[in-house]
Design a protein around this nucleic acid. Structure first.
Length: 78
DNA sequence: TTTCAGTTTCGTCAAGTCCC
DNA sequence: GGGACTTGACGAAACTGAAA
């Protein structure tokens, strides 16, 4: 038993047939809503990827800074 | 060039949430 | 409550790259 069958009792029908009673404008709205949802999701993922890149750069910079400071204090201690 | 497995894209359904 | 909207999940079709 697939998850789809659990959720959709009319799943023996090909997809699209079960909802054939829907009016065309309603179907159109669904299509557009799905497209918009996917567009937003892509945008969100891209945003997260950008953030990862920024944070990785920050991390590199901070590591470099820490290394430099350690050097300074090591020389002072000598 | 053909075949085929893996990936991406699309339309649809169902469930959840929000707002009136 | 009920209609409109959002989103995860599914199957089908289209696309892609590697192997034969």
């Amino acid at each position: 038993m697939t998850a789809c069958q659990l959720r959709n009792p009319s799943s023996s029908l090909p997809q699209g047939v079960a909802g054939a009673g829907l009016t065309a404008p309603r179907n159109l709205k669904r299509k557009e809503a799905a497209r918009e949802c996917r567009r937003k999701k892509k945008e969100y993922v891209k945003c997260l990827e950008n953030r990862v890149a920024v944070l990785e750069n920050q991390n590199k910079t901070l590591i470099e800074e820490l290394r430099a400071l350690k050097n300074v204090y090591r020389h002072k201690a000598e």
